[in-house]
Every structure is written in C-alpha cells, then in structure tokens.
Simulated assay, not measured.
Amino acid sequence: MSSHGASSRGLSRTGSPANLQPIRFVTLKQFEALTGYTVDVVNSKIERGDWPEGAVFFKAPDGRNLIDLEGYEEWVMHGKAASGQLHRAASQ
C-alpha cells in the first residue's frame, strides 16, 4: 500500500490528527462507553427533562437520540437549565 492510499480505517495516511474533526454527537451506547452513564440513565434524564432536546441531546433525522457532547459538557459545568439556555449561558 502506498503512503498516499487510504488506510484500513478510511483515513489518508498523509493526513495528520490535526486535520481530524472531533465528534460532537454520539449515540447513547457510545456515550455510555465514554462517560459511564448507562443508556437507561440517559433515557431517564431525557424523559424527566433534565437534559433538554436541542441543548444536551438532539433527535437525529432517523429518529435516534444523539447526545451533544458540547451540551453535556455545559450541563456538567453549569447544571440544569431550560432548553437552549445551556448554550447561551456558556457563551456569556
């Protein structure tokens, strides 16, 4: 395989990690692996309204809930807030 071809992971060998964009939205299972919050706990937080849609989680076009890691980080740092206020509070 040449140094200019794609690796088995689909990334160019000539690209550097600095060219990679961090993942912002993750599935509940990915979120569980990253944070230890189980899928059941996440679903409970969503159902109770602790994590408002559009702030900590988003509904994907296919209907799945995705966690916004930026919104989650703001929730950790600033606590419970109404939908949309988490992003505004962090930018002030």
Rank of each mutant, 00 (worst) to 15 (best):
M1A: 10
M1L: 08
S2E: 03
S2G: 08
S3I: 12
S3R: 09
S3L: 14
H4C: 03
H4E: 13
S7C: 15
S7A: 15
S8K: 05
S8V: 15
S8P: 02
G10W: 07
L11H: 11
S12Y: 08
S12T: 05
T14R: 13
G15S: 13
S16T: 14
S16D: 11
P17I: 08
P17S: 08
A18F: 01
A18M: 00
A18C: 02
N19T: 08
L20Y: 12
Q21K: 06
Q21T: 07
Q21C: 04
P22F: 14
P22K: 08
P22S: 13
I23M: 10
F25W: 10
F25N: 10
V26F: 13
T27E: 06
T27K: 01
L28R: 04
K29W: 05
A33R: 02
L34W: 00
G36W: 03
G36V: 00
Y37N: 09
Y37W: 07
Y37A: 03
T38H: 02
T38E: 02
T38F: 05
V39Q: 09
D40E: 10
V41L: 08
V41R: 00
V42D: 03
V42R: 03
V42E: 09
N43K: 12
I46T: 02
I46P: 00
I46H: 04
E47D: 07
R48E: 05
R48Q: 01
G49H: 00
G49T: 06
D50W: 06
D50N: 09
D50H: 10
D50E: 13
W51S: 04
W51D: 04
P52K: 00
P52H: 01
P52F: 03
E53G: 00
E53P: 03
A55E: 15
A55H: 09
A55V: 05
A55S: 15
A55Q: 14
V56G: 02
V56W: 08
V56E: 15
V56K: 01
F57D: 05
F58C: 10
F58V: 13
F58G: 01
F58R: 08
K59Y: 12
K59A: 15
K59S: 15
K59E: 15
A60T: 15
P61F: 14
P61Q: 15
D62P: 01
D62L: 05
D62H: 10
R64Q: 15
R64T: 14
R64Y: 12
N65I: 11
L66S: 01
L66F: 13
I67C: 06
D68Q: 05
D68K: 04
D68G: 05
L69W: 07
L69E: 03
L69I: 11
G71W: 03
Y72P: 01
Y72M: 05
E73D: 14
E74T: 09
E74V: 11
E74A: 09
E74H: 11
W75T: 03
W75E: 03
V76G: 09
V76M: 14
V76A: 12
V76K: 11
V76F: 11
M77D: 11
M77R: 11
M77K: 12
H78N: 07
H78Q: 06
H78M: 08
G79S: 08
K80E: 14
A81E: 06
A81K: 12
A81F: 07
A81I: 01
A82M: 03
Q85L: 13
L86T: 02
H87K: 13
H87N: 02
H87M: 14
H87I: 14
R88G: 07
R88M: 14
A89E: 09
A89N: 06
A90S: 09
A90E: 04
S91K: 13
S91P: 01
S91L: 10
